[in-house]
């Protein structure tokens, strides 16, 4: 069996004449938290569906947990916990009924005890008779996660699990994901939040259906070859348009009142920025590029390469 929990090569999916996922190669190691990033419509959900046997790829092949993604979809479904992008449980069933339904579908023995344990772990024992539809966004996500974990999967596929959830609930959610990874469960999680990307062991960035970059956050930073300066202070944002026009500047990103000015060539960037160091009300500091800088620039390159 391959050392990888997910190991796919050349995965391709077309809808009509649109190639939604294009020659995707991806490897996820056992026990790691793999962050799957990419703009809207880049093909994250479609890729995840192919990896868990819900969609048949038009080309490519691969294994999830050692099972063939095309031929052994049924086996994959038994071992994987997939949390869909939309809330996939029943709004008109109670919390308990939802979990009980899942337990029956997986044919669990000692159903009662396991549902009880899941409710207890969620802290929802007191509210088990409440309809799932009446839960707040954060609680819904936790319930959906509990549903995915009920059959004790080895691999979790989480599709934007924290979209629309408040920061503190997101934080709890991520603590839980780390705890699960610690227990040996492999997690593939898609997200649009950069702070969540920073919490992953490894990241993959997809745009236009192609995997553009893959590695640890540090590797990605180093590989981008970016030199980044932060301009802060009251006068900083007024400079954005002017700086963006400079040929040595690859990217200008706004962070509140500060600007991240990045370029590939450190010396050229230094020279180009020299005249602006004197501008009053702006403080300059050399920093590490943020993941956002790197992804935006990757996407722009991709847009140029694959129109």
């Amino acid at each position: 069996m391959s050392a990888f929990v997910i190991d796919v090569v050349g995965l391709t999916k077309r809808y009509g004449d649109k190639t939604v996922v294009n020659q995707l190669d991806m490897q996820v190691q056992r026990g790691e938290i793999y962050g799957f990033l990419g703009p809207n419509g880049s093909g994250k959900t479609t890729s995840i569906r192919m990896m868990c046997g819900l969609l048949t790829p038009d080309a490519g092949s691969g294994h999830t947990l050692g099972f063939d993604v095309v031929k052994e979809a049924a086996a994959i479904k038994r071992e994987v916990g997939y949390m869909t992008q939309r809330f996939g449980l029943y709004d008109d069933l109670t919390i308990r009924e939802n979990l009980d339904f899942i337990a029956r579908i997986y044919g669990m023995i000692q159903r009662r005890e396991r549902v009880d344990a899941a409710l207890d772990r969620l802290g929802l024992t007191a509210r088990q008779k409440q309809l799932a539809g009446s839960l707040s966004g954060g609680w819904k996500q936790r319930l959906a996660l509990a549903g995915c974990l009920l059959h004790q999967p080895q691999l979790l596929l989480l599709d934007e699990p924290t979209a629309g959830v408040d920061p503190s609930a997101r934080r709890d959610f991520w603590d839980e994901i780390h705890a699960l990874a610690h227990e040996g469960i492999t997690v593939l999680v898609s997200t649009h939040y950069m702070d969540e990307a920073e919490r992953c062991h490894r990241l993959g960035y997809i745009a236009y259906g192609r995997l553009l970059a893959c590695g640890t956050p540090e590797e990605l930073t180093a590989r981008s070859g970016f030199t980044t300066w932060t301009a802060s202070g009251s006068g900083a944002s007024a400079l954005a348009a002017e700086l963006e026009a400079l040929s040595a500047v690859a990217l200008v990103t706004r962070f509140g009142n500060a600007l991240h000015v990045s370029g590939q060539d450190a010396t050229a960037l230094d020279n180009a920025l020299a005249p602006y160091r004197a501008v009053s009300g702006v403080a300059w500091e050399k920093t590490r590029p943020a993941l956002e800088d790197i992804f935006i620039s990757l996407m722009r390159q991709a847009a140029d390469n694959y129109p």
């Binding site: 868990c52 819900l54 997939y82 869909t84 939309r86 996939g88 449980l89 029943y90 579908i105």
Partner: peptide, 10 residues
Amino acid sequence: GTMENLLATP
């Protein structure tokens, strides 16, 4: 959206 969830189970 519950169908996707259902079909992802056995």
